[in-house]
Nucleic acid binder design. Sequence first.
DNA 1: ACAATTGATACAATTATAGTATCATTTAGT
DNA 2: ACTAAATGATACTATAATTGTATCAATTGT
Lengths: 132, 132
Amino acid sequence: MKLITRDTDYALRALCFISRSSAGKFSVTKLSKELGVPRPFLRKILQTLNKQKILESTRGKAGGFILAKDPKKIFLTDIIGIFQGRLKLNECFLNRLICPDQRTCLLRKMLVKIERYVLKELGSITIASLLK
Amino acid sequence: MKLITRDTDYALRALCFISRSSAGKFSVTKLSKELGVPRPFLRKILQTLNKQKILESTRGKAGGFILAKDPKKIFLTDIIGIFQGRLKLNECFLNRLICPDQRTCLLRKMLVKIERYVLKELGSITIASLLK
DNA sequence: ACAATTGATACAATTATAGTATCATTTAGT
DNA sequence: ACTAAATGATACTATAATTGTATCAATTGT
Ligand code: FES
Ligand code: FES
């Protein structure tokens, strides 16, 4: 079970890298070299982050990406949400044959509980906090 | 993110069904009809449960599967482990570029913490407890 | 004008999940 | 002994998700 997929991972790497540097603006070419991430894939990822207003892009020669937000305000749950959809452990996976009453279902309650816990924990981590 | 995959799900359905019934022994054909699970797939699943000593099989005509253990002693984590491998949220997913010291890594600590929590919660659910 | 960049989007490869098929072996019933 | 109904073992196929690649258009500094 992957809590964090490759694209989320790469996105985090890029955000951390950009946050740490004072330079501010980076092209995909530069970032892909620095991070060891395939260029076209990273490009797609950064474009997504741009659309989601985590990054801001400038086009044309000498263009590139800069942070659009304070790293203290970029949460791990945001990035996971963007690339993996809202974290959801499971739909009701056993059907009514097994689980005749969803309101009292123990398993359901437990999954909801776990989900809340995970979201709370991940929601406390930001890009800033990853930089130590 | 799926905490529980289809085969785990089907396995749970089957185990619950068998546990609930006093009859004890069921053939794949019977179970697949009762549970609405594709027969060959269910068969593979039950064979696996047999190998893992969760079920016990008898071959030949009038053969089938019975529980090999008290439903109070079959834990959700066991079944997940069998079909999905030991629950593991993530390897160290950011490389050393980003995370220079694993011993102090905040994210790592948090993932380990979440993993422990999930295991603890799931480890408290048994087939018996799913039957209410 | 040109080169270096991103925007948008379609395409391809790889991997994981879900499911099927088949032949061999066992066993109850006749 | 024969047959039918079951599992054991295992190889195969299909589908979906993930992980990438490629390409053409638009923008911008020089
Ligand atoms: S398993 Fe879905 S509500 Fe109980
Ligand atoms: S991200 Fe791997 S140890 Fe910190």
